[in-house]
Design a binder for these strands. Structure first.
Lengths: 406, 406
DNA sequence: CGCCTTTTGTTCTATTGAGTAACAATATCG
DNA sequence: CGATATTGTTACTCAATAGAACAAAAGGCG
C-alpha cells in the first residue's frame, strides 16, 4: 500500500504503457537471455503480436539483437534475442585503502579483460589523474571492446551522489573530494560514484541471474577494516536524506564501549572489524598503529584464520568472539529491516564454517521472533568481486531500471 | 533506480494508464478537496478534456460527488468535487494495556461521533466479544452515518497481517490471538489489524493535509510503556519478512545493560520507556512491580513532568537522563534510515521544551554527519490520536493507494 | 513424398485512452 | 452590451494493447 507523492508524481502519458512494458521486456531479456519472442510473451502473459512490436522497437534502438535459432522439438525454431553489448563496455573502479581495482565488462557485468590493480595514491588529486590515465590506457590496449558507456567508481566512505563528490573516507584519509567532474573530464565518459557497502547491495540486486529482489528486501554486510552495509527495500537501494542510510556499522553495541574512528563509542564496527579481531588475538588495541601503517601489515586476518585452522586456540577464540558480536549486530539488522536474506562478504567469511554457529547463537539471543532467527545468511566470496560488480551496475543498471510511475 | 521484480511484476494492460491516472486524481481530490476539474487538470498537468472523462468515471462509481460552485474572480464558476463518504464510515480501534478506544470517522478520518473508551478486558476472547458488541451499539446509536466500510484495529505488539492475528503483545499479556476472523464474524465487517507503531506512521503518511511523504522517508517513534516505531520508505510502511521491521526499541544501547522484557538486555526501550524514567526518579527498578499492577499506577510520567516543571530537580534530572538516551537511539534511526523527518509521540513529549536540548546533544554525539544531526523532529500530540488515525487508515487508505505497476 | 500437427513470428483490425482543438456555458469588467 | 476570461464538454487524432487470422518453418507419419 503505497501513498502517492503529491510533490513528485508522474501521470500516465500516451507512451507510458509502452515505456513500462518495454522496460519489463528489456529486463527479462537481460536476465533470461537468450530468449525467444514466444517465451517472452509467455513470461509477460501477453500476446506474441504485442511482443513483436515491442521487440522491433528494442531492435531498432540497438538495445537487443537477434542471434541464432534455438532448438525446438516440434514446430518452427525460435530466433533468440540477446542484450546488445557488442559495441559497448563499462568501466568499474573499486578504490580501497591500499589498492585500487579496475575492471572492464559488458552491460551484463561479464569481464572483457583481466581485472587490473595498482596501489592507491593517497593524494586524491594525483590519484584521479593516475586513474584517468590507466583507464585510457586499458581502453587503448583493448581496441576490440567498443565504446565506453561510463565509469562507475566505488569508495569506502560517504558520498554525495548528486554532487558527485566523496564526503568522508576515513580509511583513505580523504575528505570532501570532488571525484565525478575531474574524472569525467579526464576520461571523457560519464562517471557515477557510490559507497562500497551500497554498491555491494546493488551488485546483488542487479546480478544477472539474481533472484535477490524476487525474495523481498535484502541487506548486504561487508566486513573488513570497517563495516559497510547496503539496504535494499522494494528493489531500491536505500540512500536517505544525507546519503548515510544503512550505516549499521555505527549503531552501538555498547555506548560505554571503546572509542570508534567516527567519534562515537561502542559502535558495532569497533567490535567486528578485522582490526578488532586482530587486536583481540594480540591482546592490545591495534587500531591506531594499524591505521598509521596500513599496507605494511605483516600479519592479517587471513593469516589468523590459517592459524585457527591449524589448531591455534587463541586465534579460534578471537574469531569466535568476533562472530558473537557479528551476530548481535545482525540481530539489529533483522529487528529493524527484517530482510528476507542477508549477504555477508569480507575476509572473515573464509572462516564461516568455524564461526557460523557462534553467529547464529548470538543472533537468536536478540532477535524478536524465533522465525526471524532463521533469516537466510548468504556468503559472498571475494572472488565474486561484489564491489566491482556494484561499480559496473552504477553505469549499466539505469538502462534496465523500472520507470517511475504515479 | 528500482529493479523490476521478476517473480511478481505487472505489465501495463490496456486499462493501466487509466488506472494510474484515476488513482492520482482520486488521491488529489482526497487531499485538496474541495477542488474543481480545472484545478485538477492544472495539478496533474493534463488537459481538462481528459479530466472530465476521468471525473465522470469517478462520479459514476460514487467515489466522489459534485458539491456547490466555487468562487472565481472572472469567468465561469467551477463546480467543486468532494470525496463521497456520505454513505460510508470507518471504525478505528486502539487496544492499549489499560483502556481501549473506539472512533467512527468518514473516509478522510474526520470524526463522526465522540471518541469512546472502555477498560481493556485482559481475556482476549471476552475482549473480542465485548468489542464487537460495543461497535454494533455505537453504529446502532448513530443511524445517520451510513454503512461501515471496515474496522481497523491497532495493538501494542507484533501482528501477522495476512493471517489477521496478534503474535505477541507483552503489555497485554496476549500471545497468538486470532483477531480478524472472530471480530469480523461478530461485526459483519472486514477487519484489518496492525502494530501501533506502524499504524502511527501510517497515520502521518495518510493524514489528509499530510506532506509527510512529499518530504521523503519518515520514521514515527512512540514512547510510552514500550517504544513503537514505524518506518516509511518511498511512501510505504516497512513490514519485513516476519512483520518485525522497525523494532528499533529492541536494538541495544548496551548489550551488557539491564534486562529487557523481550529477553535480550540493554535495549533502547529499557532506557527510555516511561517506566525507565519513573524508575530513575524513584531510584529503583519499577519494571516488575509496574507491569504487575498496570492500571493502578498512582504516580505516572505526567505527574513527574508536573513536578519537574514545579522545580523538582530530581524529576528534571530523570527526564533529561531519558532525553539523552532518547537522542542516542534516534541517532541510530538516523544513521540507519536517514529519514527527512522523525515524528515523536508519547507522554514525555509534553516536556519537550525541557528536554529538546538534551535530545539534540545526544543525537549529535553519534550521528555520522553534522547535517544529519539537524534532522527535523516533529512532536505529535496525543490530541491528534495518531494510533486511532492509523487504525482508520488501515481501512480507508487502500482505496487511495498507488496501483502496483512494473 | 505429401499431409497433418505444432510452434513461431507477422499482419490486420478493434478497442481503449491520452492529446488537441474547437466550442458552449458562465461570469466579470468597462 | 460586447470584450474577455474561465470552466467544462464534444469531436477528432494518435498511440498502444487485444485478439483473430495467417504465413513460415520444422518434425512426424503413412
Amino acid at each position: 500500500m503505497r501513498k502517492i507523492n503529491h510533490k513528485d508524481f508522474k501521470i500516465a502519458r500516451r507512451g507510458t504503457s509502452r515505456e513500462i512494458n518495454r522496460s519489463i521486456a528489456l529486463d527479462l531479456v537481460r536476465s533470461h537471455q537468450p530468449i525467444s519472442r514466444a517465451d517472452l510473451a509467455r513470461l509477460m502473459n501477453m500476446h506474441r503480436a504485442s511482443i513483436t512490436l515491442l521487440v522491433n522497437e528494442l531492435l531498432a534502438e540497438n538495445l537487443i539483437f537477434e542471434g541464432g535459432t534455438g532448438e525446438n522439438h516440434r514446430g518452427r525454431k525460435p530466433t533468440l534475442l540477446y542484450i546488445d553489448s557488442r559495441e559497448l563496455c563499462v568501466i568499474g573502479v573499486d578504490i580501497r585503502a591500499t589498492r585500487t581495482f579496475i575492471t572492464v565488462t559488458d552491460l551484463l557485468g561479464r569481464s572483457l579483460t583481466n581485472i587490473t590493480s595498482f596501489p592507491t595514491n593517497k593524494d586524491p588529486k594525483q590519484m584521479i589523474v593516475e586513474l584517468g590515465k590507466r583507464i585510457k590506457r586499458i581502453l587503448a590496449d583493448n581496441q576490440g571492446i567498443g565504446a565506453c558507456a561510463g565509469v562507475g567508481v566505488v569508495v569506502p566512505g560517504m558520498v554525495d551522489r548528486v554532487g558527485g563528490r566523496l564526503l568522508n573516507a576515513p580509511t583513505l584519509g580523504w575528505r570532501d573530494v570532488h571525484l565525478r567532474e575531474p574524472l569525467s573530464a579526464a576520461t571523457g565518459f560519464p562517471v557515477h560514484i557510490e559507497n562500497s557497502g551500497r554498491a555491494c547491495a546493488l551488485a546483488q540486486v542487479w546480478a544477472t541471474r539474481g533472484e535477490a529482489t524476487a525474495l523481498g528486501d535484502v541487506v548486504f554486510v561487508s566486513v573488513s577494516d570497517g563495516i559497510g552495509v547496503g539496504v535494499v527495500v522494494n528493489g531500491e537501494v536505500l540512500h536517505g536524506r544525507h546519503n548515510i542510510a544503512g550505516e549499521f556499522g555505527h549503531t552501538p553495541l555498547n555506548i560505554d564501549g571503546p572509542r570508534c574512528s567516527c567519534g562515537a563509542s561502542g559502535c558495532w564496527e569497533v567490535y567486528v572489524s578485522n582490526i578488532a579481531t586482530l587486536s583481540r588475538y594480540f591482546g592490545r588495541n591495534l587500531a591506531e598503529s594499524k591505521l598509521a601503517s596500513a599496507g605494511t601489515s605483516v600479519f592479517d586476518i587471513e593469516d589468523l584464520i590459517v592459524r585457527a585452522r591449524g589448531g591455534d586456540g587463541k586465534a579460534l577464540v578471537a574469531l569466535q568472539s568476533t562472530a558473537r558480536y557479528l551476530g548481535l549486530g545482525l540481530a539489529s539488522i533483522i529487528n529493524v529491516i527484517d530482510p528476507a536474506r542477508i549477504y555477508i562478504s569480507g575476509e572473515i567469511t573464509g572462516a564461516w564454517d568455524l564461526i557460523e554457529k557462534n553467529v547464529r547463537e548470538a543472533l537468536a539471543e536478540r532477535v524478536l521472533v524465533a522465525a526471524a532467527a532463521e533469516t537466510e545468511i548468504s556468503i559472498v566470496p571475494a572472488s565474486d568481486y561484489p564491489r566491482l560488480q556494484g561499480a559496473v551496475a552504477l553505469v549499466s543498471a539505469p538502462a534496465f531500471a523500472a520507470p517511475m510511475v504515479a
